[in-house]
Design a protein around this nucleic acid. Structure first.
Lengths: 214, 214
DNA sequence: CAATTTCGTGCACGTCGTGCATCTATGCAC
DNA sequence: GTGCATAGATGCACGACGTGCACGAAATTG
């Protein structure tokens, strides 16, 4: 399976659909990076992807959804990677290793939509869509967590709570890393891994802290 | 201060603005509950609030933002309540008590926008806006957390991580509670408090769990 | 009361998003 | 290969959305 978690083999019809979807997604992201999300019209995206404007809505329901589609695929890929980890690993171990697996997939991927997203993250109209894309994976992630723990825990608050907090942790960690990235090339993935390890360690150790003495 | 965290005294101009904003917010929520978010036009909201359509955009930039404004105010109120807790309380203690404080404010508030939100939460166009409204408070919350812990911790990943995970926990807990609420009246707040306590306890104890043995 | 600022409003314009009808390419059965 | 059934692509029309601009009314200031 690809980094997007989508199968590559299928009938001609399915392959054409995938190609069209990818063309739209890439065109939207490219134009958004070049001109700013707010300054891109669906007309131009459709032109760039060589489809009719009307056809755009057969694939995405808004400009923002198309721009963010790449990241949404990464989120799905992460859940798949988590699922693929050995059953013996603890939840946070599998989380850590799953993230690293996806990162490895991405660095070996020619198409670099991460550095593209860097330059437009924080655009007001994208923030809600990115958050929604992340939240859309919470249920699937929670189910994957439930499969990994014992029956009692699986039925409790824990799976959803852990899914939500883990995704929030990844979001915060990524955000900090991107913030501290100089505008030039993306800095070392090593620092990102270190940050993720720290975040996960905090989750594992518990999040309470004493108040100030005075 | 009110539950929205806004001052009540000011010049006539400010008071009129607040009143208009509240009128729009309430009209939007009322119509959204009655007819469904997707079936309400800005025209009708403006009519219900007795303002010109053009004026709507002086206060909100979209229908969804207006509908969600009440909840966004609650989020702000929570951060304020957290800040107001005694400095000696630990982070998660203050979190717990702050939430309860806000709940107390809300039950003593005549205007019940919680049960209104119950009936329209999950509307596809609202989800991103609700998440964004919550995320918008993360920075303020993180700063409040940083003020409560020692200097070393304040400068670390911890404040933002804790803010994000705590808000995610509240979101999940509220969501579960609303899901299990029968369509009739909102069920006891006691069960909500218990759920919140459980969620916070998990955060405090650490979120790792062993994998399945086989 | 006069000057100034802020806010409400109408108008025009471009963009967004959808329902509907039609046309074309694909897949399938034979 | 031929013809049929279906899914996808496209054009069209329409209503809703969101913003810039200019003007007038109300509030504030002094």
């Amino acid at each position: 399976m690809t980094v997007d978690g989508e199968p590559t083999t299928a009938g001609r019809r399915e392959r054409k659909k995938s190609a069209t979807r990818a063309a739209i997604r890439d065109a939207a992201l490219r134009l958004a990076v070049r001109d700013g999300v707010e300054n891109v019209t669906l007309d131009r995206i459709a032109g760039e992807a060589d489809i009719a404007l009307r056809t755009f809505f057969n694939y995405f329901s808004s400009k923002e959804e198309a721009v963010v589609a790449g990241a949404a695929g990464d989120f799905r890929a992460f859940v798949a990677a988590f699922r693929a980890r050995p059953r013996g690993e603890s939840v946070l171990q599998a989380l850590r290793e799953g993230v690293l697996d996806v990162m490895d997939q991405m660095v070996s991927d020619e198409r670099d939509h991460i550095s593209a997203l860097v330059s437009i993250r924080g655009a007001p109209s994208l923030v809600p869509q990115l958050l929604a894309a992340l939240a859309a994976q919470e249920d699937a992630f929670a189910e994957a967590i439930a499969e990994r723990v014992d029956a009692d825990t699986a039925g409790s608050l824990y799976p959803r709570l852990c899914a939500a907090t883990a995704l929030a942790t990844l979001r915060i960690t990524l955000d900090r890393w991107l913030e501290e990235s100089p505008p030039g090339g993306v800095p070392s993935f090593a620092t990102l891994r270190a940050e993720i390890d720290r975040g996960i360690a905090e989750l594992a150790a518990g999040l309470d802290r004493p108040g100030a003495p005075e």
